[in-house]
Design a binder for these strands. Sequence first.
DNA 1: AGTATTTCAATACTCAGACAAAATGTCACT
DNA 2: AGTGACATTTTGTCTGAGTATTGAAATACT
Lengths: 251, 251
Amino acid sequence: MRSTKTSAKPRVRANRSSLRLHGAIAQDLGVQILSGRYQPGDVLKREIDASVRLKVSRTPYREAVRMLAAKGLVESRPKIGTRVSPRSRWHLLDPDVLSWIFEFGPDDALLASLFELRKIVEPHAAALAATRRQQDDLRTMQRALEDMARHTLQVEAGRIADQEFHSALLRASGNPFLISLTSGVSAAITWTTIFKQRRGALSRDSLPDHARVYAAVAAGDAPAAHAAMARLIDLARGDTPQSQPSRKRAR
Amino acid sequence: MRSTKTSAKPRVRANRSSLRLHGAIAQDLGVQILSGRYQPGDVLKREIDASVRLKVSRTPYREAVRMLAAKGLVESRPKIGTRVSPRSRWHLLDPDVLSWIFEFGPDDALLASLFELRKIVEPHAAALAATRRQQDDLRTMQRALEDMARHTLQVEAGRIADQEFHSALLRASGNPFLISLTSGVSAAITWTTIFKQRRGALSRDSLPDHARVYAAVAAGDAPAAHAAMARLIDLARGDTPQSQPSRKRAR
DNA sequence: AGTATTTCAATACTCAGACAAAATGTCACT
DNA sequence: AGTGACATTTTGTCTGAGTATTGAAATACT
């Protein structure tokens, strides 16, 4: 028994009041797992101790564990306890998991992998969008472009417009599974721009690149849309710390 | 109040004993949502009533709702209740969500979309695998090939070998996000073969196609691996009911 | 009349403690 | 040495109570 007398450590920070208690606990544990504080194979404290430690009742703690299990991060069985699952089971493209990954500072290699995925997916998505886009897709993309121009990427509103552009493009692809990758793309965008600003790097003006993609999609020119998007991503990737792990061949 | 006197409907089927009660409830609700029985925007019964209806206590019911919320299917707030989220928020590539989708009979359009994703992702993954594969990746893929040959796709063991081949290939790509798409690919494979057999269609022997992919990956020939995988998927897709995804707005 | 503020009611949320079930390890018995 | 009963540990489920949040209705104010 540690002398927990009145240490009064509010282990679980209710930073986001919008998150309920179980949500805050899930975030807390999730960040610890994704940061490596808990390794795959480790077993968490038994829930009775853990909840005492966090100064919460078992109910929200258990619900937090259920959430993590739903995202493939942990697995719990009677008599064994709750253990961290192997990385291959983690749902890395889950929006929460992504946000937890980047919560404590993003891993360069992982960001590079995310860009690799974007480079694979988004050009094809743009090509599909060029053949399937509806009027309101184009309207949304155009409005996003205008917002990117009005505000810049220096401002929150501008960055949101950037994400909205890519989100609208994926939506225009008409493929629900591509659409569900939106969160991953957004995470990559967010952290790329943050990196840029953090290093004070002079940010290329990506507006013309986006405009080229839009023009091709609006014109229904699939090959051009593919090419324009590929170029956009390559240029954006150039700004990340290291585009190292991929010895990528052309195309 | 319907006279539910002693209807005694065990609404939640404990079909899988491995699933705990909360897991069974989550599956039950998840299937109902994904099948359209509950539409986006609908609010579920308040948890007190729902748990009574299912003849379980509130604890496992709440945990089930937490799991669904973690997968983006529902969202719950005090005074409002638990409401089904818009489709655009659903984590369609979540393994459980995929299995629930295909639980009650797969949607042709959705399966087509899944193939579209495979067609985009897997060829590039094969190309990456050709440049990054390690010895044990090749060993695993080769063993999977042998198993596919020994058993056929008529047998469970053969189908598992097929999935294992694709899983190993994604693993060999070295990209964690591509790896996390394994479940989606596996779901597509599973339901394609089921479709084939269901219609008694003479199943093409896909073994040579797989062998070609393996050879290219083993040889480190990225363009050849890309081409071989693209061909494999096109041929596999030929067996699905309809290869045209229908445009469906994801509100 | 219209707008801001207060009150209210509905619902999920949290707590506490008990008991049940599952799964692993142990130990006697064959 | 093997096999089955049993003890133990941990999660799983149940119950009932009280709290917090939030949308909407009611009220006060301009």
